[in-house]
């Protein structure tokens, strides 16, 4: 991936934590007060990537893989142990105030709003903290409020909001100062389908209308399917995949399925290049590998032999794909592509 002027530039990024080692027993608890043994945990272990302005990138990985640590370094909350990190020309942790004025960040379960105040008052306070001119604030609030449908709860104290409403309010708070970059940690966690949809639409609309660059971590792969052209997968602190969602599917998607409803009953429906995975009355489900036969070819072969009433090609579920990648460790570090050269 050669990018002309990446807005995020990361090379060999590392973050190590010293974690106190615990041994059992009351005596050792006492001893640990005097001398502790530490274990070095490499939470992020040599991660490199570039992100171009205007991209929406999904950052995936199992729990404890290093996602949040990376995000905390990108937002300046944590200082890296090594490597290079440049975001929009800033070293995030070194120029905290100037840097955070240019980014928006929403960290999952936590709110950045004042718990006991109506939403609008929090937004007003943030306007002063970010020093957004009043008319900019007003027109932004109008536009963002419309997209997120904030109207019904602008005057409600944050503590009384539902989780979905609160997340919408938090997203509004993160975008009112027109940041170039938006970092989202699990933006849809715990939300119902309608709220998820509203949040995804908002992210897309900000990306399209303002060119906001978005980096988001998620466990919900439908977020990724709706939002992200590009996916990065981190596991055990190392980037194991960085590329387009489609190529992730192509490489690790496993077998596709062809569901066929026949006009007549058949005992044997076998065709070359596919395996009959399931039979149910007049329905057969074929499983086939994308490398050995195309869907069109296979349909041709089936149609040449039997009369078909209906058919459907099923792509492997992205969720299952990613789970397979974590579990079977299908990728190793070398396969992440051009950036590591």
């Amino acid at each position: 991936m050669s990018l002309k002027s990446p807005i995020i530039h990361v090379r060999g990024l590392e973050k190590n934590f010293r974690v106190a080692r615990y041994r059992g027993g009351a005596l050792s608890a006492l001893r640990s007060l005097i001398s502790r043994e530490y274990r070095l945990v490499r939470a992020v272990d040599g991660v490199s990537f570039d992100i171009a302005a205007g991209e929406i990138v999904g950052y995936l990985g199992p729990n404890g893989a290093g996602k949040s640590t990376t995000l905390k370094m990108l937002t300046g909350l944590l200082v890296p142990s090594g490597g290079e990190l440049l975001v929009d020309g800033f070293t995030p942790w070194r120029e905290r105030r100037r840097y955070v004025a240019r980014i928006g960040a929403v960290f999952g379960q936590r709110t950045s709003l004042w718990w006991d105040l109506p939403v609008i008052e929090s937004l007003e306070l943030l306007r002063h903290i970010y020093r957004v001119p009043y008319d900019r604030f007003k027109s932004n609030l109008h536009e963002i409020g419309e997209t997120l449908d904030l109207g019904p709860f602008l005057d409600t104290p944050v503590r009384s909001l539902s989780l979905g409403q609160r997340m919408r309010a938090d997203l509004a708070a993160a975008m009112l100062h027109e940041p170039k970059l938006l970092f989202l940690d699990e933006p849809t966690i715990g939300l119902d389908v309608v709220a998820k949809e509203s949040i995804r639409n908002f992210i897309l609309s900000m990306n399209r209308s303002r060119g906001t660059t978005v980096v988001l971590t998620t466990h919900d792969l439908s977020d990724v399917e709706k939002l992200c052209e590009r996916v990065m997968i981190i596991d055990h602190g190392a980037l194991i995949f960085d590329g387009r969602l489609q190529s992730l599917r192509d490489r690790f998607g496993g077998d596709r399925r062809l569901v066929v409803d026949f006009e007549d009953e058949h005992v044997d429906v076998a065709v070359e290049g596919a395996v009959v995975a399931e039979r149910d009355g007049r329905r057969a489900i074929y499983s086939f590998a994308r490398e050995s036969v195309s869907a069109a070819e296979l349909i041709g072969r089936v149609a040449a032999r039997y009369r078909i009433r209906d058919l459907e090609v099923r792509e492997p579920e992205i969720e299952a794909t990613v789970r397979r990648i974590y579990e079977e460790r299908l990728l190793d570090k070398e396969s992440t592509g051009a950036l590591d050269k």
Binding site: K72, G76, R98, R110, S112, I129, Y130
Partner: peptide, 12 residues
């Protein structure tokens, strides 16, 4: 609870 992170993310 991460309240300090929230403060660090604001430009003041």
């Amino acid at each position: 609870l991460g309240g300090f992170d929230r403060i660090m993310l604001l430009p003041a």
